[in-house]
């Protein structure tokens, strides 16, 4: 299993559109610092999109820390979202 496959397909597609990259580039290691479109606005859009897609509400105090795909996935899992079966 390569790294990209660890990110569920729907999440890969969603973040790819928001960060203007290809779905294959959306790996758990993808981070704000290394992604031009992942600026503060892109970050807010990603958070809103993920909340809508998974039906969760992320605590705003945690939002600034979730600056990689891996951290976003971890947060979703801590909110009870199961990311294994997509």
């Amino acid at each position: 299993m390569n790294q990209a496959q660890a990110v569920p397909e729907s999440m890969r597609n969603l973040l790819a559109e928001i960060f203007e990259i290809s779905p294959a580039e959306v790996t758990p290691g993808l981070s704000a610092g290394a992604t031009p479109a992942w600026d503060s606005f892109g970050h807010l859009q990603a958070i809103l999109a993920i909340e809508e897609a998974y039906g969760v509400r992320i605590d705003p105090q945690k939002v600034p820390e979730l600056t990689s795909v891996g951290q976003l996935m971890q947060e979703l899992e801590s909110l009870g979202v199961s990311l294994n079966h997509d």
């Binding site: 597609n13 559109e17 928001i18 999109a49 897609a53």
Partner: peptide, 11 residues
Amino acid sequence: ADVGDYTLMSR
């Protein structure tokens, strides 16, 4: 359409 679609369409 969903959020990803709107983002793509606007781009």
